[in-house]
């Protein structure tokens, strides 16, 4: 068998593992540099086409999972999953989780004193269509304080998890909002250097805003690309 075509390495927007301003990295970032390995079938394959068997059916409306409507600003987030060459990544799952409108997570270890919302869990998942498009409806999450430093507040964000086509393309990221002054002073967002940090900032969009219903935000996710399988070259090329 010929060797699989490798995926490209991380680009300049990847955060470092050690970013001391984000205190938790100090005891958790490996000291030794990672070792480069060739991409074998292990790295170029992934559980494609069976995401629902693994994760369960799609749950694209996070505002419709309970008896009543959650409190907060209803929004839709839509966009495409692409590779670095602008090719759509179809039939891939995006897993979603977030805090509620008050910035509180439905999690036993979240000690922030803001109220829970009995009508909001904040978890969902969607799958991309043939053009790589996805869309989900939720409420805009609130900012919340955390213990990283005195008066530290996380900007509003939605967590997104993607498997992509291969082990090599696995990505967990966070989507931010365009009008949020906290991004500029957040150590987690700041681990990504400018201008690449702005790739994580969604765009408000009037075209996908639904009248009398929900504000629209656009967010494309770009996964590692891969050179096309080279054509077998016959004959001489002098």
């Amino acid at each position: 068998m010929t060797d699989p075509v490798p995926y490209r390495p991380l680009d300049a927007g990847a955060p470092p593992l050690l970013f001391p301003e984000y205190g938790s990295t100090r005891l958790r970032a490996p000291h030794q540099p990672p070792i480069a390995i060739p991409h074998t079938l292990t790295e170029t394959t992934g559980p494609t086409g069976c995401w629902d068997r693994l994760m369960g059916p799609a749950a694209a409306d996070l505002t419709a999972q309970h008896k009543g409507e959650p409190i907060g600003q209803r929004i839709t987030v839509s966009g495409r999953v692409l590779d670095e060459d602008n090719r759509p990544v179809s039939d891939t799952v995006i897993e979603i989780w977030q805090a509620n409108a008050a910035g509180r997570y439905i999690h036993a270890k979240d000690g922030w004193g803001a109220p829970l919302d009995p009508n909001f869990t904040g978890a969902g998942r969607v799958v991309t269509d043939a053009q790589g498009r996805y869309s989900f409806t939720t409420i805009r999450p609130g900012a919340y304080p955390w213990g990283n430093h005195k008066n530290a507040w996380r900007p509003s964000h939605i967590h997104l998890s993607l498997l992509g086509p291969a082990f090599a393309t696995r990505l967990v990221t966070q989507m931010y909002f365009p009008d949020d002054p906290l991004i500029e002073i957040d150590p987690i967002a700041n681990a990504v250097p400018m201008p690449y940090r702005q790739r994580m900032v969604s765009r408000f969009d009037i075209a996908t805003t639904q009248p009398n219903h929900a504000l629209g935000y656009l967010f494309d996710v770009v996964l590692k690309g891969r050179d096309q399988t080279p054509f077998e070259e016959g004959g001489d090329h002098g």
Binding site: L10, D11, A12, G13, A14, P15, Y22, S24, G79, E84, N86, E95, I96, W97, A99, Y105, I106, H107, K109, D110, T121, G122, A123, H159, S161, L171, V172, T173, Q174, M175, P178, I188, A189, A191, V192, P195, Y196, R197, Q198, R199, M200, V201, S202, R203, L218, F219, D220, V221, V222, L223, K224
Partner: peptide
């Protein structure tokens, strides 16, 4: 403004931490 949709900074979406509260989502 320069953001996710700006072709000038098109490229791999940067990774972020999974955080401590993923258990109900993943």
């Amino acid at each position: 403004r320069q953001d996710n949709q700006d072709p000038a900074i098109f490229g791999q979406t940067p990774s972020q931490t999974v955080g401590p509260f993923f258990h109900y989502g993943l």
